[in-house]
């Protein structure tokens, strides 16, 4: 009786507990976290193998390669964002819980970024060095990847929510998300190549930061709406 009358946990508590839960789940299955990272490193390796090892060319194509590889790695990990929740019924509980669903969607996206996006950002300097980037370029790359991967986690959560429970969801998810992700890719990759040519870069970084803020405010609502529809 006492249990029923007690207040439901507050907003921040709801948010932090879902983030903690998802990180714990990822911690128990480290393979799921490492696979996208290996994928990221391997795709970056493929490009020099395909285009030849000349240093000038690597320096020229490096920013684009790192960004395309990061985008694909994020897509790869997004597919499973809501899948296990959908399969074991936790998604029903999330939808029924007293916390607003957009907040919980935001929590899922934050956890996804902490588990998949942040390691990718941290590994990227290694790839930058192998592509002959200067220290300053690598700093810019870290900044753009930081804002870019947060945006991709949020944007991707909309697509993952729309395709959860569908057969052949992976290809569909890429088809839905890639066109929407193009502004992030354009600004991310172009800003890093501008940095490599010692040109002003602040405009691109501001744009990515603004996009990130927009995604933080709007995407959780779209994700929540999509989750409700997919789980009917």
């Amino acid at each position: 009786m006492n249990e029923r009358e007690s207040e439901p946990p507050g907003l921040s508590q709801g948010l932090s507990s879902i983030v903690r839960r998802d990180i714990l789940l990822a911690w128990k299955r480290p393979g799921d976290v490492l696979n996208p990272l290996f994928f990221f490193a391997m795709v970056s390796t493929l490009f020099p193998l395909a285009t030849g090892p000349s240093a000038a060319q690597l320096a020229f194509s490096g920013p684009g390669v790192v960004w395309v590889a990061a985008l694909l790695a994020m897509l790869l990990s997004l597919n499973s964002l809501f899948l296990s929740d959908f399969e074991d019924g936790s998604l029903d509980q999330l939808i029924l819980s007293p916390q607003p669903l957009p907040l919980l969607s935001l929590g899922k996206a934050i956890a996804h970024w902490l588990v998949n996006g942040l390691p990718l950002v941290l590994v990227s300097p290694l790839i930058g060095v192998s592509f002959q980037m200067s220290g300053q370029t690598i700093t810019v790359m870290l900044l753009t990847l930081f804002f870019g991967t947060i945006s991709l986690s949020l944007l991707g959560s909309i697509g993952a929510a729309l395709t959860v429970g569908l057969h052949r969801g992976t290809a569909l998810l890429s088809l839905l998300i890639l066109p929407l992700a193009m502004p992030v890719l354009i600004f991310g990759a172009r800003t890093v190549s501008l940095a490599a040519n010692d040109t002003a870069v602040s405009a691109g970084i501001y744009f990515l930061a603004a996009y990130c803020m927009l995604a933080l405010t709007l995407a959780p609502f779209a994700t929540a709406a999509a989750l409700r529809i997919s789980n009917e």
Partner: peptide, 12 residues
């Protein structure tokens, strides 16, 4: 591509 995505989601 956006149109393709929309139609693909509908078809799926």
């Amino acid at each position: 591509f956006l149109y393709f995505g929309y139609m693909a989601l509908r078809a799926a």
